[in-house]
Amino acid sequence: MHTTYDWITTPLTASLLRGAIDVERTERGLLPHRLPAWARAQCTDPQLAMAESQPSGVRLAFRTRATAIELDTVPTKRLYVGAPSRPDGVYELLVDGRPAGRGSVKGGDTVTIDMTAGTAEVRSGAVGTLRFTGLSDEAKNVEIWLPHNETTELVALRTDAPVKPAPASGRKVWLHHGSSISHGSDAAGPTTTWPAFAASLGGLELINLGLGGSALLDPFTARTMRDTPADLISVKIGINLVNTDLMRLRAFTSAVHGFLDTVREGHPTAPLLVVSPILCPMHEETPGPTVLDFSTLGDGRLRFHAMGDPAERADGKLTLGVIRDELSRIVTQRAAEDPHLHYLDGRDLYGEGDAVELPLPDQLHPDAATHVRMGERFARQVFSAGGVFADRRV
């Protein structure tokens, strides 16, 4: 039997969002961003534009007695010519912090990307609707986590009871920056990207600046972190610099110092954790760039391979091994005057034994099970008793 609801439409405003750095009013609704407008204006790279507009860690948060919720959105679907279709982005519902439903939105805009030709075609699509029903009529805190890997314009929020912004949680804010792995890559949903899962285990409010393909020590990212209120801060540095073959060791050392200096301008005493890359066998001793292996597209698989030569390390080319050694040295040097600066070897989150049990499916990105494992390990090593953030977590 179809139930008829007396819908109440609540205006979508920034007050209903958590985890976003900025919001943009569009012709259709509200578009969350994870970089501010001034930073977006400084770099027109399409990869960055796509990554920062995908709302990893962004969620609607409100208090209501509603038994039914509808959310109209315009998702942006990505299609890669010659590659298998990507699954629709996942929205996850939490009620008083507990999982209560999940779903996807059909329709929306489509970006068709031809990686061999280097082209992208955009087609506009229709608004889609997400619906959750059967909720209790008790007053409750509701969160709807937006898809971590699908740009999402918010068009309308309807409920069968009034809505008001969720009260402040009182939890500490953890601000994290990293690559597509921190962004979420192949996680099963937005609450199980490794940073989101770690934050839930640690009882923290997450602001996730994991930017797929775009963790490149950009000064505007450092300034964004400097200006964003946070209690705990971490930066995961390395894999994208190898992927893009962006800089040599001389420039890398200076850029890391500059990035940390900028973050410290706004957070002089906050615990700051530098995390080196997780294990990625193809780039441990081989520099980038990283390129798509087009030979695998015919059988519907995406795989990457390293194009560099290990001998090029002598010329200052970066590998993950080189980056780990230099990050450890930099943190040790700076920690002599900055007792709140710490280092974590990324292989403690995903190392050689994990690569045997849970190999990277495309040789670059962790799968869903690995995201959960990494989140558990990060929470245990960083947030739990004895961890570098433990005494500042509550």
Rank of each mutant, 00 (worst) to 15 (best):
D6F: 07
T151Y: 01
H176W: 07
T286V: 15
V235E: 03
T10D: 06
G210C: 06
S179E: 05
L135Q: 02
L279F: 13
G118R: 12
T290I: 11
G89W: 03
L217I: 11
A156K: 10
P229K: 10
P84Y: 10
V122K: 14
S56L: 05
V90A: 01
V263F: 05
S328E: 15
L30C: 09
A168E: 15
N240H: 08
H342E: 10
P339M: 12
E70S: 09
L146T: 05
P268C: 10
R347H: 14
T133N: 11
P55R: 08
T112F: 07
L17P: 02
R28D: 12
G353T: 12
G82W: 12
A120E: 15
L216T: 09
A270D: 03
E376L: 10
L249C: 06
L16N: 01
L292W: 05
G29N: 12
I278P: 00
G101W: 03
G210T: 04
L204P: 00
L358R: 14
D245Q: 04
R248A: 06
V105N: 01
T192C: 05
V122L: 14
A161H: 13
E121Y: 08
Y343C: 05
L358H: 14
S15N: 13
Y80A: 04
P310N: 11
L206V: 02
G118W: 10
H148R: 05
G82S: 12
A39F: 03
E205T: 03
D245G: 07
T191C: 14
R301Q: 15
L292D: 03
S124Y: 12
G375Y: 03
A251I: 01
N208W: 08
